[in-house]
């Protein structure tokens, strides 16, 4: 599904990712943990194709295609989804209209038939209900005036509608209370299947308790410095990142 090979990424000439390797197979859920500023969001952005994030070395392959050759919208149509750490507000643009336009743009790019508004509304309402979000959010502008938690849940609604092959969730759990966290975890679990993969970026063990990751990686200083199973997350929760960073420094 995803193969990241010796990835080096610079922003404004400053190297942020420094030789990152990662492979995610179909149906797997990988957690990425790591201290602030270690490059987790950078990884998400570079995968989604944000301008200014230059790959200076290495590659990201998604289903055998080099992502670096693709525009952000083409990556989305190919099945890549990024839930933003800070979802963006778009004043005046109706949330439902935005999501339907996005879905139909993707379908069109894949040569599939577009969805009509009735079918669309039905599925969105269902997703909103599952995340205990109010229907009125559909009529409001995209993320405008949404609470922090609503914004995060709105990302999960978008993911549920767009049905990506690989979803990168960047700290979707940050700022959520326990109940909302559960809803988000359920939203992710509902979508899990043998074909769909997840990269879940998080600081906390508590989301992972609900998700049972197949692999946990620690990103620090622009590299994956440790990988393991879910017991790694538990250890990090107890001991913090410092012991790993000390080990890495020695190595």
């Amino acid at each position: 599904m995803l193969r990241i090979n010796n990835l080096h990424v610079s922003i404004d000439g400053k190297e942020i990712l420094k030789g990152l390797n990662l492979e995610i197979g179909a149906g797997e859920l990988h957690a990425i943990m790591g201290p602030n500023g270690s490059g987790k969001s950078t990884l998400g952005y570079v995968m989604a194709g944000r301008e200014g994030y230059d790959i200076t070395e290495g590659s990201i392959e998604f289903e055998g295609k080099d992502l670096n050759d693709m525009e952000p919208e083409d990556r989305a149509a190919a099945g890549l989804f990024l839930a933003f750490q800070y979802p963006v507000e778009i004043p005046g643009v109706n949330n439902a209209y935005f999501l339907r336009s996005a879905l139909n743009a993707q379908k069109k790019a894949r040569g599939e038939e577009e969805v009509d508004s009735m079918t669309f509304l039905k599925t969105v309402r269902e997703s909103l209900g599952q995340l205990k979000m109010d229907d009125t959010l559909l009529k409001r502008a995209v993320n405008e005036g949404f609470s922090g938690g609503e914004k995060k849940r709105n990302e999960i609604v978008q993911m549920a509608i767009l049905q990506p092959k690989l979803a990168v969730l960047d700290e979707t759990d940050s700022g959520l209370d326990i109940d909302a966290l559960k809803l988000v975890a359920e939203g992710i679990n509902r979508l899990r299947n043998p074909e769909r993969s997840f990269m879940v970026i998080t600081h906390y063990q508590r989301l992972l308790e609900h998700l049972t990751p197949d692999h946990v990686h620690v990103l620090s200083g622009g590299r994956i410095i440790e990988s393991g199973g879910k017991e790694l997350a538990e250890r990090l929760e107890r001991e913090g990142y410092s012991y790993l960073q000390a080990e890495a420094a020695e190595a």
Binding site: A48, P72, E73, A77, P87, G92, V93, A102, A105, A109
Partner: peptide, 25 residues
């Protein structure tokens, strides 16, 4: 905003039109 729209699958021109349309609402 542009990147957010594009990451959801909207082409650049459609994204601009959408943002401008929202601005003029």
């Amino acid at each position: 905003q542009l990147f957010y729209c594009r990451s959801r699958g909207l082409g650049e021109e459609d994204a601009v039109a959408l943002i401008v349309d929202g601005f003029c609402k």
